[in-house]
């Protein structure tokens, strides 16, 4: 397979990229690792006139900011994130999630920002359409959805592994363009629309990622459910964080985020509320799972039925919560 033609620009800083994006308006696209954008271009799903490469641009190292946040550059490769002891100490959930992305080579190439900014996916959409499904679907500017052919909605699913982890870590992202920057909670990055999953305008990019420090007992776990256990996207994923009172038994606050069930990661807020203030026990965890199932309805995707996804959701949430609870450090 080969790439369509484009004009190549190299950028060595996010500021320069923001400048270029605004100069080329909607025709330009940022490429960091290339593992998300280039396959899309080969399939004809993205056809930027200008490709701004930030491959191997200088990357600032992870650091702890003045307010105690872990600050990460979106240009960090997943491999670098996985290998960073600072990340492991301050956000082990992120290290865990990053290690489960794609394959070894994908992690060497792919970046944090690229993973967060990936497009939603669907079996009908992620192919070249040279002789199959030629009539465009909603996501390709048409007016049908092959996957769930009723209504006016695109049912493509956001399948990234990092975003659910960042949701549960209550991360923030700095959005920047040539003219302004803003910092928003990670949830604000996603529109929840399969057709256009990101809030970013064509001129905007992610500038930095902030992960608040935890000042207390915490247990976290990332559970990625896939058939082969590697190489592929999640059937669904769960990122669980349990912040505990000093007694190590009472849950002060909980964050449970589910990935690959909708056009954006989904927080199980009722389940979280239900567990907060309670002792972590078989019973309270089961109750949380029950609540999560009431509030999350997985979109059937990639050949899986909603019945199977619901059952898997139950098992994976339970698994993630149990592991997270087991990891609460008590000393």
């Amino acid at each position: 397979m080969h790439l369509p033609r484009f004009t190549y620009k190299k950028s060595d800083s996010l500021e320069e990229t923001a400048q270029l994006l605004s100069r080329y308006d909607t025709g330009a696209c940022l490429m960091a690792g290339g593992t998300e954008l280039l396959p899309r271009m080969k399939y004809g799903l993205a056809m930027p006139e200008v490709l701004i490469s930030m491959k191997r641009s200088p990357v600032s190292s992870p650091k702890i900011g003045s307010d105690g946040d872990l600050v990460l550059s979106p240009l960090m490769t997943l491999r670098a994130v996985e290998g960073s002891s600072l990340v492991r100490e301050n956000a082990p959930l992120l290290s865990e999630a990053v290690g489960l992305v794609g394959s070894g080579e994908i992690r060497h190439m792919g970046t944090l920002g690229g993973n967060l900014c990936q497009e939603t996916r669907c079996l009908y959409y992620n192919q070249s359409h040279s002789f199959q499904f030629k009539k465009p679907c909603f996501k390709r500017g048409g007016d049908i959805c092959y996957s769930i052919p009723k209504g006016k909605e695109c049912w493509a699913v956001f399948m990234g592994d990092i975003a659910p982890a960042l949701y549960s870590l209550e991360a923030k992202v700095k959005i920047m363009s040539r003219d302004k920057t803003r910092i928003i909670p990670i949830e604000g990055l996603y529109r929840g629309d399969g057709k256009k999953p990101l809030i970013l305008s064509p001129h905007e990019i992610i500038g930095e990622i902030f992960i608040p420090g935890s000042n207390g007992l915490r247990g976290s776990a990332f559970s990625k459910f896939s058939f082969r256990g590697g190489l592929e996207f999640a059937v669904l994923s769960v990122a669980a964080v349990l912040d505990m009172e000093d007694d190590g038994e009472t849950c002060r606050s909980a964050r449970i985020t589910v990935g690959a069930v909708a056009a954006a990661p989904v927080r199980a807020r009722c389940a979280e509320a239900g567990i907060e203030g309670k002792n972590i026990s078989d019973r309270s965890l089961s109750e949380a799972v029950r609540q999560a199932l009431d509030e999350i309805r997985p979109v059937p995707h990639h050949g899986q039925t909603s019945g199977f996804l619901k059952e898997s959701l139950k098992v994976q949430i339970r698994h993630a919560l149990s592991v997270a609870a087991g990891r609460v450090k008590k000393d």
Binding site: M31, G34, L38, E105
Partner: peptide
């Protein structure tokens, strides 16, 4: 190790 098919 990198994928040369996805490297410009």
């Amino acid at each position: 190790p990198v994928l040369s098919c996805l490297t410009l």
